[in-house]
Amino acid sequence: MSGVLVFAFLLFELLAIATVSVSFSNGSSYHVGCLESERRALLRFKQDLQDPSNRLASWIGYEDCCAWAGVVCDNVTGHIVELNLRNPFTYCDLSQSKANPRSMLVGKGPIPEGLQNLTSLKHLGLPFNHFSSSVPKWFDRLTHLEHLSLSYNSLEGRIPRSMARLCNLRRLYLGGAKLNQEISEILEIFSGCVSNGLESLALASSSISGHLTDQLGQFKNLDSLDLSNNSIVGPVPESLGQLSS
């Protein structure tokens, strides 16, 4: 009888361990919910927007913000790690990417500062909307950021030097912005810790001028570079051949 009891006890322990293992590995069965401070930050962000197609209809009240449209949270910490609000209705017209204005999120001014409180963000995607003003200087607070896409909004002004602190940045998309900046200055900004990991840089149609220099050789992991439709002149530097592909 004692042997049967021991076997039953061991079987119970194994089942308990398996249950715990499944609950931790499956995001749908273990989820702490979003943090209150980050839920409020998203609601402040929404208040500063016009949303004519009601894309953010799920962003209401005291609901779990991890279930809101475009929001992805870490299953263990509850921190928001991804905010993807790309305009879903985009199309190509005469080789140019455009978006349906009826589905744009329209900023009432600069990109709302409420997002700077989402300090665990790894992915921020706002392309093909209508955010104006310049690239915010406070982006340097998002030190975990790996993917930043602001392409084809209505941004103007230079890339701020504070973005040199985004050491985890892997992909940067700023196509269609009116940067009015020399390419050498942009490469200098990212020549520090950013250059160690940057894999994709897209600055097409961004009012960039000047000459490409050997600064490009510092970006050892860069495998995608789009500088088309700008005013960059001069020979292709030899350092271009030092890139990963």
Score class of each variant (00 low, 15 high):
R40S: 13
L43V: 07
L43F: 09
L43A: 08
L43D: 06
L43I: 10
R44E: 14
Q47K: 06
Q47W: 03
Q47V: 01
Q47L: 04
L49E: 01
L49G: 01
L49K: 01
L49Y: 03
L49F: 04
Q50G: 02
D51F: 05
P52C: 07
P52F: 08
S53Y: 11
R55I: 06
A57Q: 09
S58T: 14
S58M: 07
S58L: 07
D64L: 02
C65V: 02
C65R: 01
C66K: 03
A67F: 09
A67W: 08
W68M: 04
A69C: 01
A69V: 05
G70M: 03
V71D: 00
C73L: 09
D74C: 05
V76H: 09
V76Q: 06
V76S: 09
G78T: 10
G78W: 08
H79F: 10
H79D: 08
I80H: 00
V81M: 12
V81L: 10
V81R: 10
E82G: 15
E82V: 12
N84D: 15
R86V: 12
R86K: 14
R86P: 00
N87T: 07
N87E: 08
P88V: 10
P88I: 10
F89P: 00
D93P: 00
S95M: 14
S95L: 13
S97H: 14
A99I: 09
P101R: 09
R102G: 12
M104K: 13
M104H: 12
M104W: 11
L105P: 00
L105F: 04
K108N: 15
K108G: 15
K108Y: 15
P110T: 11
I111S: 02
I111Q: 01
P112H: 03
G114H: 03
G114A: 10
L115Y: 06
L115H: 07
N117K: 10
N117F: 13
N117Y: 12
L118W: 04
T119S: 15
L121Q: 01
H123K: 11
L126F: 12
L126P: 01
N129R: 05
F131R: 07
S132P: 00
S133L: 04
S134L: 05
P136C: 12
P136A: 13
K137L: 14
H144S: 13
H144K: 11
L145N: 04
H147R: 09
L150Y: 00
L150H: 01
S151F: 02
S151V: 02
Y152Q: 06
N153H: 08
N153E: 00
N153Q: 06
S154F: 14
L155C: 03
E156L: 13
E156A: 15
G157M: 07
R158A: 15
R158M: 13
R158C: 08
I159G: 02
I159L: 01
P160Y: 08
P160C: 10
R161Y: 10
S162R: 11
M163D: 05
A164T: 06
A164R: 07
R165S: 15
L166W: 03
L166D: 04
R170Y: 08
R170P: 00
R170I: 07
R170L: 13
R171P: 00
R171E: 13
